[in-house]
Design a binder for these strands. Structure first.
Length: 227
DNA sequence: GCATTAAAGGACT
DNA sequence: AGTCCTTTAATGC
């Protein structure tokens, strides 16, 4: 029920291409951040923009019962955070580093100035947000019309296209992810995810540790688009 | 077709 | 050694 809500909410968080990232890196200072550090939470309304230079960050929400629901995973090159003009929701998002990371921090003003001075970046942000929007739309639609197995394949395809490395038909997922993370991102349960990952492994659609997906087979068997 | 519960085995620090 | 993660099975909606 509220899982659908959760997944359909839009935050400004996304990845920037390498060149733009380097430009931004010149304007900011990077700081090393240890694994398990919460760099953004509803209480610390820092109103700043973060730039993940290296590492991995998990975005999640906390339910009324105290359970954590992973919303998205970010890898190096990603931007996240809120500015006064870009925040699209009041949702209470937490951001936690999953591994030791390097993070650039920008105030909202400096980020907005940076965009004004580099119009190409605004275009890129729109492009990136559009593809992110498409991904989220695909997920919410699949929650309504498809079974859990399909949703797992879809999510792994999306993640591997965003973060993974391809070699032949196989493509790594590219992010550290638990079955719990997968479950909350597709509106399922950890145990069911475990079951279907097992099946998908037998079908040789995926391989575990490191998690990889056979994109050709996945498209053939589950008709997920894009590649 | 799936969530939930429970119970047990494995992996990570 | 203790916590987190995964697997398996039973039950019920």
């Amino acid at each position: 029920m509220d899982k659908l809500m959760l997944l359909s909410q839009i935050n400004l968080l996304d990845e920037l291409p390498e060149e733009e990232f380097k430009k931004l890196g010149e304007v900011t200072l990077t700081a090393p951040i240890k694994k398990g550090t919460i760099i953004l939470s509803p209480t610390q309304q820092m109103r700043s923009f973060f730039f993940l230079k290296k590492g991995q960050v998990r975005l999640y929400k906390v339910s009324s019962t105290g359970k954590e629901f992973t919303v998205d995973l970010l890898s190096e090159g990603n931007v996240f955070g809120e500015t006064s003009s870009f925040s699209l929701t009041e949702s209470e998002i937490y951001a936690e580093t999953m591994v030791d990371s390097f993070v650039c921090t920008l105030t909202k003003d400096r980020f907005e100035d940076f965009i004004r001075q580099n119009p190409d970046i605004a275009i890129n942000l729109i492009t990136i947000l559009t593809s992110k929007l498409k991904e989220m739309y695909q997920i919410t639609e699949s929650i309504a019309y498809k079974d859990v197995k399909y949703r797992i394949v879809l999510l792994l395809m999306q993640l591997s296209n965003r973060f993974g490395v391809r070699s032949g038909e196989w493509q790594t997922v590219g992010v550290k992810i638990t079955q719990n993370d997968i479950a909350s991102m597709i509106g399922s349960s950890r145990e069911t995810v475990s079951l279907f990952l097992g099946e998908l492994e037998k079908e040789e659609v995926i391989m575990k540790k490191p998690l990889k997906i056979n994109t050709a087979l996945a498209k053939e068997l589950y008709e997920v688009d894009e590649g």
